[in-house]
Computed example of a mutant assay.
Amino acid sequence: MGHQKTQRLKPMLDRVPPGLLVDTQWLKGQGVDAKSIHNYVARGWLERVVWSVYRRPLPTGARSLSALSWESVLLSLQWIMKYDVHLGGVSALDLAGYAHHLPLGGTPPIHLYGGVPTWLKRLPSNARFVVHRRNIFGDNHLGIMDSDRRTEAGSQAVSIWPYPLRVSSPERGILEALDEVTDRSGFEPLDKRFESLTMLRPRVLMALLTACRSVKVRRLFFVFADRHGHAWRKHLDAGKIGFGSGPRALVEGGRLHPTYRIYVPDDFIPRSESEADAGA
């Protein structure tokens, strides 16, 4: 290998810890041409995962490509290739400890928000990536934080990067999750999660609710917030939140919430209202 190519190799490898991924576009941006990529693979400095995607090899004995950990994939997107993407919605709530049940078999969905490369859906990962647009907040980065959980390469049990995952805070995560509710089936799982959200920060919530562009999300949030009555609810000023005008249809066959004017399952109508109907 020529001296010039050797000079490019070490800085490139220094930027890619073992277990993390890069793609052809990123490698070419580092001055690595197609012939050099082929040579790096032949010499064992890179492993081909799928077409145009490569991994820095893990230590001997931990080199299975059958199921890349979703953490290593996301860290590679965020910190190596600089994609503007974060873990959000119910996945962010799960990471923060607000999962209401453990998944039973199958491939768990991992909810990502932002821009991702087209090859992501082709990766042999241990999870199924579900990608959403960032379109409900005026400030696309409001409420996104660095997770303080130590990130490891799943079953590979190898620490792969000293930096945290970029994830939605629980306050943003629950609003993103509410945006995905489209019918009756989405209410019960979120109700269980909402029950555990006792430590949300009112100032963060107010900032996010003010920036939120979705009337549906704002109305649904207060339906759940009033239903559970956590201590932080009294610190939210609903009068400063725009709820739009007119009723909103969401649940077919549901009932119109008397305060927030959105159709929800019967169980989500305030008890006093339900009792009044029953006595009529």
Rank of each mutant, 00 (worst) to 15 (best):
R149I: 08
V130C: 07
Y163C: 00
R166Y: 08
R271L: 14
S36I: 00
S272W: 04
I174R: 03
D266N: 12
S214M: 08
V53C: 08
T107M: 13
T60F: 00
D191A: 15
V167N: 01
M145T: 11
S36C: 03
E180S: 12
Y54A: 03
G19K: 07
G88W: 00
V264Q: 03
V158F: 11
P17C: 08
D226E: 15
P202G: 06
I241D: 10
H3L: 11
F221L: 07
G97D: 09
E195H: 14
E273C: 06
R134C: 03
D23Q: 08
H141A: 07
S147H: 09
Y54I: 02
N135R: 14
A207V: 03
S36R: 08
L46F: 04
A67Y: 02
R219F: 08
F222T: 04
N135Y: 05
R133W: 03
R201H: 13
E180P: 01
G279Y: 06
S36H: 11
S147A: 13
R150F: 08
S66F: 02
H257K: 07
V16Y: 03
D191T: 06
S72V: 12
S159C: 04
A225C: 12
S125K: 00
G89F: 06
S169W: 05
Q156F: 13
P164N: 09
T60D: 13
H101R: 15
L197Q: 08
L112W: 01
E273A: 15
S185Y: 11
A207N: 14
Y40H: 12
P109T: 07
E275S: 11
W79G: 11
G154I: 06
A42L: 11
G242A: 10
R48P: 10
P270W: 00
L75C: 13
W70Q: 13
V32D: 00
H228D: 09
N39W: 04
Y83R: 10
H86D: 06
I174K: 03
T107I: 12
T259S: 13
G254I: 00
K82G: 06
S72L: 07
R8T: 05
M1H: 12
R261E: 12
